[in-house]
Structure formats: structure tokens, C-alpha cells
Design a binder for these strands. Structure first.
Length: 215
DNA sequence: ACCCAGGGTCATA
DNA sequence: TATGACCATGGG
């Protein structure tokens, strides 16, 4: 990126002033965050709410129950959030993974992340969502919204999730963000992205953030 | 009708 | 390592 590009901290401060993220990842339990993270893959959160309501009504927002549920039954309940054949299998595998929750809690963050990515159907972004919101570890979510936002801010951002993470993680680390800040950061970025879309794109919306240089 | 959404897998080069 | 096809549903 150019030397004039704003720091992560300056971007965070600007978003805090301009955006209201509300309560970003609403969930009653850690397992509900795991389920929501899988269901929301490439799907609007509204669709996920329908599926979560179905699962809650069926008493399946519990790892022990979900782990032994037939895939066909699951598919019927999660149909509103799409990709039901793949996601039903992923949910069952994720529930089995979750049964070992006590030992996962003791893992260092990078090993927790790797353990999640080992579950088929859970990739880097879903893993980071779970690590951040479920296990409250300090990680930045390098999703498409973040990559678009940082590009608009003048950062040179690689295309893929993992390439962006590899290359730009040091710039986030410099900001010395706490876990609650990183959780808020992600929500702010996504809400800002939605706003930017309805305002005709980042080119129009970014300048209204009035990001301070060097701050 | 078209495009997108709080991605991941698999095949291919 | 990195790109592209494919997956499924609901809303604007």
C-alpha cells in the first residue's frame, strides 16, 4: 500500500463514529454461533434466522442432538439458508467436533483455528468467525467486505482470504486491537459495506467516513 | 429476469 | 499457489 494509506486504527475509529453495528452476532450459546457460522456461508443472515428458528423449535441447537440427527431431517429444517445437502453434513461434523469443546478451549488460537479448518465444510472464514465470536480470541476477519473496505482505503489487498491474511495481518497487529474491538470491527465493516452498496459503491461512500490520516 | 448474499470443495493448470 | 465451476434459497 502507499505510505499515505490510513492505519487500521484510524479506519476503526472512523467506522465507530459513522456506523452503528448494533449487537452483531446474536446467539445464546457458543454452539449456536458454530451453527450460525456454517449456515451463513454465502447466504444473507435473514435466511439463517429462518433456519435457526426451525432448529431451535426442533430442539436441535444442542451438539449432542444435532450430532446424531439424520441428514435428510436436517436438510428440511435448514432449507431456507441454501446449500442444504452440503451444510447438513457440515453441521453434523461440526456438532461432532463440538462434543470435544472442553479440550478445544485449551488450545492456542492458531491450533484452534487449524482444528476447525480440518472439519470438512469449514474453511478459513467460518473458522475465524467461530474463533472470534465463539471462543473470544483476537482474530481479524478477512472476508470479502473487509477486503473491499481496505481496498477502498488504499491498501493493496490480495484477492483471496488466506492471501490477504498472510500479507496484511501485521498491519492489523500494529493496531493492538482487543478481542471486543475486533468483534466490533467486523460488524462495523459489514454494516458499512451494506451502506456503501446502497449508496452506489465504496467510491462514493468511503470519502464520507472522513478517515483521519496518520491518526 | 437478474444479481447478490455474513463461503467451501473440487478439478485443473 | 491460484483460478473457475458448482452448489440452493430468499430478497431487492
Amino acid at each position: 500500500m502507499t505510505s499515505a494509506a490510513p492505519s487500521a486504527r484510524a479506519l476503526f475509529d472512523a467506522l465507530c463514529r459513522r456506523i452503528d453495528a448494533g449487537q452483531w452476532w446474536p446467539a445464546d450459546t457458543r454452539f449456536e454461533i458454530v451453527v450460525g457460522a456454517v449456515l451463513t456461508q454465502n447466504v444473507a443472515w435473514r435466511n439463517v434466522e429462518y433456519s435457526l428458528a426451525n432448529l431451535r423449535e426442533a430442539g436441535l441447537l444442542e451438539a449432542q442432538k444435532l450430532a446424531t440427527t439424520a441428514s435428510a431431517d436436517l436438510q428440511r429444517l435448514i432449507r431456507p439458508s441454501g446449500f442444504m445437502r452440503a451444510k447438513s453434513e457440515t453441521l453434523i461434523r461440526a456438532a461432532r467436533w463440538f462434543l470435544d469443546d472442553a479440550s478445544h478451549t485449551r488450545l492456542p488460537t492458531d491450533e484452534l483455528r487449524a482444528s476447525l479448518i480440518d472439519v470438512k465444510g469449514i474453511g478459513p472464514e467460518t473458522a475465524d468467525d467461530i474463533v472470534l465470536y465463539g471462543y473470544e480470541r483476537p482474530v481479524f476477519i478477512w472476508d470479502l467486505y473487509a477486503r473491499r473496505f481496505l481496498s477502498a482505503a488504499g491498501w493493496a489487498v490480495p484477492r483471496s482470504y488466506e492471501a490477504a491474511r498472510r500479507t496484511l495481518q501485521p498491519l492489523i497487529d500494529e493496531g493492538d486491537f482487543t478481542t471486543p474491538e475486533l468483534a466490533h470491527f467486523h460488524g462495523l465493516i459489514v454494516e458499512a459495506g451494506k451502506k456503501a452498496r446502497s449508496c452506489g459503491g465504496w467510491e462514493a461512500f468511503y470519502p464520507t467516513l472522513e478517515v483521519s490520516q496518520r491518526g
